[in-house]
Structure formats: structure tokens, C-alpha cells
């Protein structure tokens, strides 16, 4: 028992007073300052319950279970996220930490919070729209990436219309938000291999027409990151049918050949890893073969001089030698 002050509030009381405080903050009346204080105070209490402090261990499972149940019943998680921009600096971080802790709750093999969020997908959509607001973008990012680790939640996000907003978020002029959004975007497209492959197959045209814009972005970092991710996606064996589709389109080949001679060495190098797939394809469609044949000598010459300083990178040199050999041996189709 603490010597001074009141005894500890129960989870239900805590959640109720936090909810009242956030609601007051949302109204924004003249009591807002007091509300701000109450929000911060209650958030810290809840956080300490979940994480413990330097002097105290986290609360027992029963208390944590009660707390989580109250959070679901009152829809407080959504309310907190909707009002995140109104909560003070430390409070925003506390919301993310409370959220991430509760999200990972498990009862046997069940994840009750994940199940709860599946019934309240607004939580995910509100978090995704957090990238529109500079002051909460990275707090939302931490919560989103944690959500993306759960297949059920990743699926909701991938298949939503809001997913296509990411193509805008990853290109915003503020680097920290763009790169945060890119990390989440990448997580969504790579974490759950089967889910991602199914999604990309079902939405190939829409996704890749958006993706094309990233590859042509004015922003160097966006271009480099998205090219690298493209290489990873195409070379992942789960995405085999997506890869075969991608490498039959001559426009894609042209783009990669142009990127091979971009100013940036990193972009050249990443483009090489996509370009090689076009060349290595044993069943090249005619339009692809035609482009390669028209540039046969130039390509051999270009690749021979390409990144010759990477002598220590054995795999790269083997692949390069293989490509040069393949291109030299190319012959027109006989029909």
C-alpha cells in the first residue's frame, strides 16, 4: 500500500476517467486545459499498469485483462486515435505504447485485441489517415506497423481503398513522414507472403499503375526505395506469377533500361536486379526480345563497363557475366 495518496484506481475507473477527459478535450471548451492534464495523467497510469515502472512490475494478468476489456467495451482506443492531434506530446507517445501493448495480448493462441480491431476497422483507417497530419504521423506509424504484423489486420488495410493513399504518403516532401510511410507500405506488401501474393495478383493493374508513378518520382529517395522494393517483390518466389506478368510488358523493360543509366549509382544497381529478370526469362515475348535485339551490341558494351569497381561482389559479377553471355547469344525468333 502506498503511504501517501489514494489507493490505486481500478481499470474500469481509469478507463472511464480517461474517456471523460478525452471527450472533454474533443469538445474543446474552456475546461480543455484541465482535460489535457487528466488525459496525460490517466494515460501514464494505464501505461504503468501495462508496462510497470522502474520500481514496480506490470500488473497481474487479471487486471490487464479487465483493462483490455474496458478498452474494447468503451471504444476508447478509437476515441484516443481520433483525438491524437489534441493530446500533448508525451501523451501521444503514451497512446502508442498503450495501444501496442494491448495489441499483443494473447489468450492461448487467440489475440483478443486483433479480433476486436477486425470488428472496428475504423481504427485502422484512422491510423492510416494519420499520415496526413505531420504532428501525429510517426505515432500512427508505430501503431500501424505493429498492426501490420497481424495477417488479419494487414488484409483489411491492403484491400481497403485507403491503401492507395500510401502511394501519395511515401512521396510527400517531408522526408521523415515519407520514409515512415514507406516502412509501413513495405511491411504491408512483404510481411505475409501468401496474402501479399494473392493481393498483388488480384489487383495487379491498379497496384502497378500506381507503382509506376513511384518509379518515376521526382524524389530521389522515393525512386530508389521503390525500385529496391520492386526488385525484392519480383524476386520473391511467392510472387512468381506477378513477376512473369511484369516481365512481359515492354514498357517495364524500357523503364529499367533507362534506370540502368541514371545518374545515381544506387539506382543503376537496383535497376540491374530488375533488368536481369527480363533477360533471364527463357520465354521472352516478341516485344521484349525485339528491344533486347535492337540494343544487343549497346547492351553488351554497356554491361561490360557497368560497375566494374564491384570486384569483391562475386554474385553480382557472376550475374553480370551471365547476362552478357545471354544477350550475346540472343537470336530473332524464326517464324
Amino acid at each position: 500500500m502506498p503511504l501517501f495518496g489514494k489507493s490505486q484506481k481500478s481499470p474500469a475507473e481509469l478507463v472511464r476517467s480517461l474517456k471523460d477527459a478525452v471527450t472533454a478535450l474533443e469538445r474543446g471548451d474552456k475546461k480543455a486545459e484541465k482535460a489535457q492534464e487528466d488525459v496525460s495523467k490517466n494515460l501514464v497510469l494505464i501505461k504503468n499498469m501495462l508496462y510497470g515502472t522502474s520500481d514496480a512490475e506490470p500488473q497481474t494478468d487479471i487486471i490487464v485483462a479487465q483493462l483490455a476489456q474496458e478498452l474494447y467495451n468503451t471504444n476508447l482506443l478509437l476515441l484516443l486515435i481520433q483525438n491524437l492531434n489534441r493530446i500533448d506530446f508525451e501523451g501521444k507517445k503514451d497512446v502508442a505504447q498503450v495501444f501496442n501493448n494491448v495489441l499483443r495480448r494473447q489468450i492461448g493462441t487467440r489475440s483478443p485485441t486483433v479480433e476486436y480491431i477486425c470488428t472496428k476497422p475504423e481504427i485502422l483507417f484512422t491510423l492510416m489517415s494519420g499520415y496526413e497530419h505531420q504532428e501525429i504521423a510517426s505515432n500512427c506509424g508505430t501503431m500501424l506497423r505493429e498492426c501490420a504484423r497481424y495477417e488479419a489486420l494487414a488484409k483489411i488495410m491492403l484491400y481497403s481503398d485507403d491503401f492507395y493513399n500510401f502511394f501519395r504518403y511515401v512521396e510527400v516532401s517531408t522526408f521523415d513522414i515519407a520514409s515512415d510511410a514507406f516502412s509501413t507500405f513495405k511491411e504491408l506488401l512483404t510481411r505475409h507472403k501468401m496474402l501479399c501474393a494473392e493481393f498483388l495478383e488480384a489487383n495487379y493493374d491498379k497496384v502497378f499503375s500506381h507503382y509506376q508513378r513511384l518509379l518515376n518520382s521526382e524524389n530521389y529517395v522515393t525512386r530508389r526505395q521503390s525500385l529496391k522494393l520492386l526488385g525484392e517483390l519480383l524476386l520473391d518466389r511467392h510472387n512468381f506469377s506477378i513477376m512473369t506478368r511484369y516481365i512481359t510488358n515492354p514498357d517495364n523493360l524500357k523503364l529499367m533500361m533507362n534506370m540502368l543509366k541514371e545518374k545515381s549509382r544506387n539506382i543503376q544497381f537496383e535497376a540491374f536486379h530488375v533488368f536481369k529478370v527480363f533477360v533471364a526469362n527463357p520465354n521472352k515475348p516478341k516485344p521484349i526480345l525485339d528491344i533486347l535485339l535492337r540494343n544487343q551490341d549497346k547492351l553488351v558494351d554497356f554491361l561490360t563497363k557497368f560497375h566494374t569497381d564491384r570486384s569483391e561482389d562475386e554474385q553480382f559479377n557472376d550475374e553480370k557475366a551471365y547476362l552478357i553471355k545471354q544477350i550475346k547469344e540472343l537470336k530473332p525468333l524464326e517464324h
Binding site: S179, S264, R265, N266
Partner: peptide, 22 residues
């Protein structure tokens, strides 16, 4: 950034951490 290979992640980490601190 073009001169570095993996450093972009570290720069991102640096910013992310500093944004969390006041």
C-alpha cells in the same frame, strides 16, 4: 545518400528518435 548503402536507415532512425524526444 547515393554514396551510402545502408545508412539511409540509420538517418531515418536518428530522425525518428529525435522526434520522440523533447
Amino acid at each position: 545518400v547515393d554514396k551510402t548503402k545502408e545508412n539511409a536507415n540509420l538517418i531515418q532512425q536518428d530522425i525518428l528518435t529525435r522526434k520522440e524526444l523533447q
